[in-house]
């Protein structure tokens, strides 16, 4: 599981994207992010998660974001990407 950092700024997002790509390349059966620590979300983070969802689908592996915080859920919803990024309806934590 890849832990999403509290502040999903561009540097962190770039790092997470790299980490996610490596996980997919390793051939694991699922790409899972832990969203429980997220307090600040930017558009780049939402895009990265959308990219992760797409990559997982392409690779044929499961994708999920576990325990997304309210901030993360709100950002994803605002962007209209809940269905893509949070389809499994993980728990929102404060």
């Amino acid at each position: 599981m890849i832990s999403l950092s509290a502040d999903l700024d561009r540097t962190n997002v770039a790092s997470l994207a790299h980490e996610g790509a490596e996980v997919l390349a390793s051939g694991v059966g699922a790409l899972t992010f832990d969203g429980s620590a997220v307090t600040r979300v930017r558009l780049c983070a939402v895009q990265m998660l959308a990219s992760a969802a797409r990559s997982a689908a392409t690779a044929g592996v499961a994708f999920s974001v576990e325990q997304p915080t309210a901030e993360l859920v709100a950002a994803v919803r605002l962007c209209g990407l809940s269905d893509l990024i949070l389809p499994s309806a993980g728990s929102a934590v404060q």
């Binding site: 561009r10 997002v13 790509a21 895009q47 990219s51 797409r54 893509l84």
Partner: peptide, 17 residues
């Protein structure tokens, strides 16, 4: 969101949506 690339090609500095 169809312009969002795969993770391997993802650039955090770019806008896709």
């Amino acid at each position: 969101h169809n312009h969002v690339p795969e993770l391997a090609d993802f650039d955090a500095a770019n806008a896709y949506l």
